[in-house]
């Protein structure tokens, strides 16, 4: 029966499933992007295969435990503890359902403390209706900040014109008061500097520079300058990790074959021991070769 579902049907229903699951344990979550953004007029239609959930940072572990209890499957391999290695989201699937459910502990580009950023978003949250159920979502202005950060995250500096068309559509859907709220939210969640150029291009006045998050801002800019360079991603995780987390980080970076993008985690599960061994060797060689480049890139930028 599920195979005959359209992706739109399944994604709408999966929002309701995830919302109800989290509500059963009083875990505060906000649903972002995808059909929620469409229902708020921030995006035109279009297929989304994900359910994106921003979770109360204080309850992320509870949320992960909960979905495991329900038998949902961690998409990136059961052996991967995404949160422990600095990934901002963990993806799950509900057995038999096509959409992935991305559980975010924070949102990249919101440089403020994740808990305070979440509380700021939660304080103004709204309810949208999907699949005839209540789905908690950020207020439209707050949601715009998230959509803009998401649009920029995978674009190198100078490429942001690619992101501007959908952002202009979203911006046009906001009233003047909400546009002011965008700037306020960006400032309060630490997203003002990441979004400064975009806000100016949209005609907003972002106000004085926010220099509270200089280290995190440098990391955000570096990740954008090296979009797609996994060595830089891992180096950033290394810098952000506590010492006791670093041994696992090294093991994941060089040895955890389930994280190697040349195959899906599921394909790696089925690989022979020889294939996995060869994959690990390639991964380790590639990783070691990338470290000097990542470090040099960092020094070159003086950050």
């Amino acid at each position: 029966m599920t195979a005959e579902l359209t992706l739109a049907e399944a994604t709408h229903l999966a929002h309701a499933v995830a919302a109800r699951a989290m509500a059963t344990e009083d875990i505060r979550v906000l649903f972002v992007k995808g059909p929620v953004a469409v229902s708020q007029g921030l995006r035109t239609g279009g297929l989304s295969s994900d359910v994106d959930i921003l979770c109360d940072p204080a309850r992320v572990r509870d949320a992960v435990d909960l979905v495991h209890e329900y038998g949902w499957t961690r998409y990136s391999g059961e052996q991967t503890d995404a949160m422990a290695i600095g990934m901002h989201a963990t993806a799950f699937t509900i057995p038999g359902w096509p959409p992935t459910i991305d559980l975010h502990a924070n949102f990249p580009g919101m440089l403020a403390d994740p808990q305070s950023a979440f509380e700021r978003l939660w304080a103004a949250h709204r309810i949208v209706r999907l699949a005839h159920h209540n789905i908690p979502a950020p207020a439209p202005a707050d949601h715009f900040v998230i959509l803009a950060l998401h649009a920029l995250r995978t674009l190198a500096p100078g490429e942001q014109t690619v992101a501007m068309a959908p952002l202009k559509t979203a911006w046009a859907s906001l009233d003047p008061r909400e546009r002011q709220d965008v700037v306020t939210t960006a400032r309060e969640t630490g997203a003002l500097e990441p979004l400064r150029e975009v806000l100016i291009e949209l005609g907003a006045e972002p106000g004085p520079a926010d220099d509270r998050f200089s280290t995190a801002l440098a990391q955000w800019r570096r990740s954008r300058e090296h979009v797609g360079d996994s060595a830089v991603v891992w180096l950033t995780r290394w810098e952000q990790a506590r010492w006791r987390e670093r041994p696992e980080l090294v093991w994941r970076a060089f040895w955890d074959i389930s994280m190697d993008n040349s195959r899906s985690p599921q394909e790696w599960e089925l690989a022979t021991r020889r294939e996995r061994a060869l994959g690990r060797l390639r991964r380790a060689r590639r990783g070691l070769a990338g470290v000097p480049r990542a470090i040099n890139g960092r020094r070159g930028k003086g950050s």
């Binding site: 029966m1 599920t2 579902l5 229903l13 499933v17 109800r20 359902w97 699949a131 005839h132």
Partner: peptide, 30 residues
């Protein structure tokens, strides 16, 4: 009334629904 534990969508000429109850792994009914 539709039970409040049921999520459903109506597209074109069909309805797809699922009952929301732990363990939340039920497959939708068409």
């Amino acid at each position: 009334v539709i039970d409040e534990s049921v999520a459903w969508v109506h597209h074109d000429d069909r309805v797809v629904l699922v009952k929301l109850a732990p363990p939340f792994t039920a497959l939708p009914t068409r």
